[in-house]
Amino acid sequence: MSENPTPEIIEPVAPAPKVRAGKISSRHIEHYVAPLAETPLQSVDKVDETAEPLSMWAQAWRSLRIQPLFIISALLIILVILVAVFPGLFAKADPTFCKLDFARQGPSAGHPLGYTFQGCDIYARVIYGAKASVLVGLFTTIAVLIVGGTFGALAGYYGGWLDAVLARITDIFFALPLILGAIIIMQLPAFRENKSIWTVIITLAIFGWPQMARITRGAVIEAKSADYVMASRSLGLSKFKTLVKHVVPNSLAPIIVIATISLGIYIVAEATLSFLGLGLPPSIMSWGNDIANAQISLRNNPAILMWPALALSVTVLSFIMLGDAVRDALDPKSRKG
């Protein structure tokens, strides 16, 4: 094992020599089998036959809940959600009270992060901006996962005309400019008068799903040619059940990666739309909006931009870490314990 320095490949101590043994099997050596009394079975190998059989997801949860990566990221996410739901608990200042008298001023008592270009309290705006940003990031990701994931999995798994049609639809959607789409969606009668967080989520989801569909399709195509799929089919499991039970769970890694990064990208994309007058109205605060509005201060007061960007980073970081932990937990080969 010395030539493999990666400690992550956690192998039970006992089987390792067997692998060795296989490699040098050409040599003639005498096989020595120690009596059981000398080397008792290690606890790892013991199977508790009285325990209820666990599903893959339950096993994942068992290993997940004790991982430090998971605990830290979960705590961070809970914090972000708390801030989003109860901003009043975290900030006393009124984020909508902006006076040019305070414009671009540094930190002062009660205003720990200073003021924006328009003279609003940066700290209060970062706190109150969490709601819109987290909602947009989270719900767009969920919508994209559902739509893109379903289409991608079906296209990749069944192939044929279904794949062709879905792939060509994604080609068209990919090529559609987001701005053009957003202009159209925003002027639909239903959205025209009440632009809200949900209009932004719908817009971003409509333009975000093709990417997820592509990635899922690729992962499913890769996974469906694996042996366990054939095994499952031979055992008489239906095609669809095989897809849900075996193919999809084994295709999750790239999907998780794209989802967690895209979460951050969607929050930033909301800023782009808002900046172009296609997103949230100015009265709804969001990190993205504040980042976009800080552009004018970039040369002279970069701190105005830094704080909402930092809040965004921490949120994205916690979701990426969560994604990593979930992926690890779902992968039986890298699961510890």
């Binding site: 990666v257 794209i258 890298s334």
Partner: peptide, 16 residues
């Protein structure tokens, strides 16, 4: 950023 994370995750999946 996407390419790095995707490659990293795949490598971790496959190296075992």
């Amino acid at each position: 950023a996407y390419v790095i994370r995707l490659t990293r995750t795949s490598i971790i999946e496959n190296k075992s």
